[in-house]
């Protein structure tokens, strides 16, 4: 399933040239998204036009030029995992909140990522906040700072699975922690 991939760990900080075609593509895509949410509502474009324009500008500015391959199977596995974990995460935090004893043992921990692709890292950081007991609080130099509700030996197990599932979506191999620190 995983195919060899170009290394994508180069930060893309240099602004690159954008083509008018790319801009048009974003405007059309986001315009369609707006229409999907507000079908047949002409007045909604009063807000929609500036929002689509701003969102397109942001997308053009932030979109990294690295070519990516997505795996459908990987997407389905990630989605299944995410939905299952959403239930666990919501249930876990609800139980803690409603329990009279309110069991909490929070800690702020660093997790060095094996994922090196920037987009994959951002996706992981966002999904992580919806996993049971973990919340992303910072991301710098390939290390995520995670706030956990209940620090223990099992803390990083879900995180590792999530990382593997995200890598599966992008069909990219996972490096080792050493690679990142080197």
């Amino acid at each position: 399933m995983s195919l060899p991939c170009t290394p994508t760990d180069q930060p893309s900080l240099v602004p690159r040239k954008q083509t008018a075609g790319e801009a048009l593509l974003w405007i059309i895509t986001l315009g369609l998204l707006w229409t999907a949410i507000n079908p047949g509502d002409l007045h909604s474009w009063l807000v929609g036009i500036p929002v689509v324009a701003l969102a397109s500008a942001a997308a053009l500015r932030l979109h990294s030029p690295v070519p990516r391959r997505y795996s459908l199977l990987g997407a389905m596995r990630l989605a299944t995992f995410f939905v299952a974990q959403s239930f666990r995460g919501g249930w876990d935090v609800a139980k803690r909140a409603l329990s009279p004893a309110m069991p909490l043992n929070p800690a702020m921990l660093n997790y060095p990522l094996r994922l090196r692709d920037e987009l994959a890292q951002v996706l992981l950081v966002n999904l992580n906040s919806l996993l049971p007991g973990t919340l992303s609080a910072d991301l710098a130099n390939g290390v995520v700072t995670i706030h956990v509700l209940d620090a223990g030996p099992e803390t990083f197990a879900d995180m590792q699975t999530l990382e593997e599932r995200v890598a599966g979506l992008f069909s990219i191999p996972l490096g080792t922690e050493k690679d990142i620190r080197a």
């Binding site: 995460g89 702020m108 906040s129």
Partner: peptide, 10 residues
């Protein structure tokens, strides 16, 4: 931070 957990996940 613990409050943020409650908000996002639930």
């Amino acid at each position: 931070f613990t409050r943020l957990h409650a908000l996002t996940k639930a």
